[in-house]
């Protein structure tokens, strides 16, 4: 009997002996035929990883990516049939992968790729507009946190992550210079896009995510980042559909 455990054992490792009990049409040992499954499984997982991490592939080149990917797919096979979410652990895997240790920003590039993917498949919601915001009574606004849309993602990086992305995505983009950058990913319609978050903005949004009101969070952020530009941050958020419109009508609140 060939159990599924036995069949599985050799699928991701070419060095494993063939499972017993597999035959060809003449009842002779199946030999190389098992390799078809081995190839299918390995190649499909590597292809899924390449599709999911285009910035990483661009940064290290297709050949290096092809050399790296088998290490990941063997040690981290998918845990769910939703292949569009395969690779959640790839950023951490890269961070711990010794041969790539010199490219310190590569794990953050992988986080950005994965965040774009999550954003693409996130739930659709109506965004908060400048008009909605203006209609909220000042007193309500002071104590109300803004809620980010499910497709909005924030990445904090010790590296110039936004500039690294832009340098690889846009012609004539400036060469990244050493600095820390926070990245905002938003999806106004169907295509997620990274934006550079102004200094302190990530702190402000995180403080509101923990329940603090708009004003209290802004004051707290200004304490830590005197240059925090609330107007510029709001303009960016509202202009990119980053904030979710509350489901109950704020205008009728007192």
């Amino acid at each position: 009997m060939t159990t599924q455990a036995a069949f599985r054992s050799g699928l991701l490792d070419a060095g494993t002996p063939l499972p017993d009990g597999l035959v060809d049409g003449n009842n002779a040992p199946a030999g190389k035929r098992y390799d078809v499954y081995r190839n299918n499984v390995t190649h499909a997982l590597i292809a899924a990883l390449e599709t999911a991490f285009p910035l990483v592939a661009k940064l290290i080149g297709a050949q290096n990516f092809a050399a790296l990917a088998p290490f990941y797919v063997r040690s981290h096979p998918p845990s769910s049939p939703l292949m569009m979410f395969y690779g959640a652990d790839f950023p951490a895997f890269i961070a711990g992968f010794e041969p790539l240790a010199e490219i310190g920003y590569l794990a953050d590039a992988a986080r950005l790729d994965y965040a774009l993917r999550l954003s693409y498949h996130a739930a659709d919601v109506a965004p908060l507009t400048a008009h909605d915001l203006a209609a909220i009574p000042e007193q309500t606004l002071a104590t109300t946190p803004l809620t980010l849309a499910p497709s909005t993602r924030i990445l904090r990086s010790d590296w110039p992550l936004f500039d690294i992305w832009r340098f690889n995505a846009e012609e004539a983009a400036p060469k990244p210079r050493a600095m820390a950058q926070d990245v905002l990913i938003t999806r106004p319609e169907f295509d997620p896009k990274p934006h550079l978050l102004p200094e302190g903005a990530a702190d402000w949004l995180d403080t509101m995510a923990q329940g603090a009101g708009f004003e209290a969070a802004a004051e707290q952020t200004l304490g830590a980042h005197p240059d925090f530009d609330l107007t510029a941050t709001l303009t960016l958020l509202l202009g990119t559909a980053a904030v979710q419109r509350p489901q109950n009508d704020l205008n009728t609140r007192t």
């Binding site: 009997m1 060939t2 599924q4 455990a5 069949f7 599985r8 699928l11 009990g21 499954y37 299918n40 499984v41 499909a44 997982l45 899924a48 096979p77 998918p78 845990s79 769910s80 049939p81 292949m83």
Partner: peptide
């Protein structure tokens, strides 16, 4: 079959 334990192998694997 394509799932074994908690692993999804992303291929249509054969059955006896």
């Amino acid at each position: 079959w394509s799932t074994h334990g908690s692993e999804f192998l992303n291929d249509l694997l054969p059955l006896p």
